[in-house]
Amino acid sequence: MGNFAFLAAMLLVGIGLWALVSRRNLIKLAIGLSIIQSGVNLFLVSLGYVRGGVAPIYTYAPPGVPMVLPTPQALTLTAIVIGLATTALMLAFIVVIYRHRGTLDAGKIRELKG
């Protein structure tokens, strides 16, 4: 239980994977990927946490207190924007697919098979 933050992050990834393999709707697919993205972000940020630490900002920082690690936060910042970009492009594809097919059911969007 000490690693509850890591566990929660991995559970988020698991929930996202569950969404991916059990739902047959395209927007649900995008939602599942967003959830996995959140889980990975949470995992990254949790990696940088130092018990009792403060945010790595020296403006008005309380003196003499350890700071949490800055690198995972920088990585997560990048990952968040990448996730948004991915989501936006996927939703654009979904909108175009809906325009052609009139459905969002993954089981019916299978012109490309075999």
């Binding site: 933050a5 940088g48 945010a55 995972p72 936060q73 910042l77 968040i80 948004l84």
Partner: peptide, 22 residues
């Protein structure tokens, strides 16, 4: 987790813009 930068980014992008585009 003491990551205000990430919190702002997540609030701005996750709460407003992702909801908006969804």
């Amino acid at each position: 987790l003491q990551a205000p930068d990430v919190a702002i980014a997540e609030a701005g992008i996750g709460a407003a813009l992702t909801t908006a585009i969804y």
